[in-house]
């Protein structure tokens, strides 16, 4: 068995691949920020909010965590137009990512909030803070500190899972790889290169998150 690697054949497509890489990076960053914001709000609602709101959030979380990401994506992109909500591939991709990470991070952040000793909350309340002030100033920092590694892992899982958005022609790195392979048929080279790019992205994300964590939680 002999196969002659010909990476040179990818060169004409460098701009397509670069665009895909940037798309994936931007998609990851935006959905991380928005997804963690959704997750924080969801976790706050489930732990500190009124019961009815907590139940709505619980339904959202279970719905997302128990269905495949690709089905969620297809539902948003192909299903919602039936209700008159027509989104571009890019918008649908971002939306699906945020909704997905939002659900997982709700559960992760909720675990962090529940791990904060009840006494700290009582101490905050006894100092005349409202429960929302206690949440913001006493609970969240401690909660994030506890669940930061778990949340980091989830962000990387979502980043790698973002490859699925290529299925609705959102122009991410995997979409670029498919595009190139369908033109020059250098499947081996293209997917090897893209696999390495994802690997590098994952490692980079991990160290970036670790560095960010050191800055945010510098105390102690």
């Amino acid at each position: 068995m002999s196969y002659k690697l010909q990476f040179a054949e990818l060169l004409p497509y460098w701009s397509v691949l670069l665009y895909g890489l940037v798309f994936t990076i931007v998609l990851t960053i935006v959905s991380t920020v928005a997804g963690v914001a959704v997750g924080t709000a969801g976790a706050a609602a489930r732990t500190f909010g009124p019961g009815w709101l907590g139940r709505i959030v619980a339904v959202y979380v279970e719905l997302i965590r128990n269905t495949p990401f690709i089905v969620q994506l297809f539902f948003i992109f192909f299903g919602l137009p039936a209700l008159g909500l027509k989104l571009s591939e890019t918008t649908a991709a971002f939306l699906a990512m945020v909704i997905n990470l939002g659900a997982y991070s709700t559960e992760i952040i909720r675990a962090g909030i529940e791990a904060v000793p009840k006494g700290h909350i009582e101490a905050g309340l006894s100092l005349a803070m409202t429960k929302w002030e206690v949440l913001r100033h006493v609970v969240l920092n401690q909660a994030f500190r506890k669940i930061y590694p778990a949340l980091s892992s989830q962000i990387i899982i979502v980043m790698l899972g973002s490859a699925v958005v290529s299925q609705i022609s959102a122009e991410d790195l995997t979409y670029a790889a498919n595009y190139v392979a369908s033109r020059n048929f250098r499947n081996f080279e293209v997917y090897l290169l893209v696999a390495l790019a994802y690997l590098a992205l994952a490692m980079l994300t991990r160290s970036a998150l670790r560095a960010l964590g050191r800055v945010i939680f510098k105390a102690r």
Binding site: P117, G119, H120, E122, A123, G124, H137, V138, N141, Q142, R145, F217, A219, R220
Partner: peptide
């Protein structure tokens, strides 16, 4: 249990 806020 004192309940000081550990991050402050």
């Amino acid at each position: 249990q004192f309940n000081l806020f550990p991050h402050l």
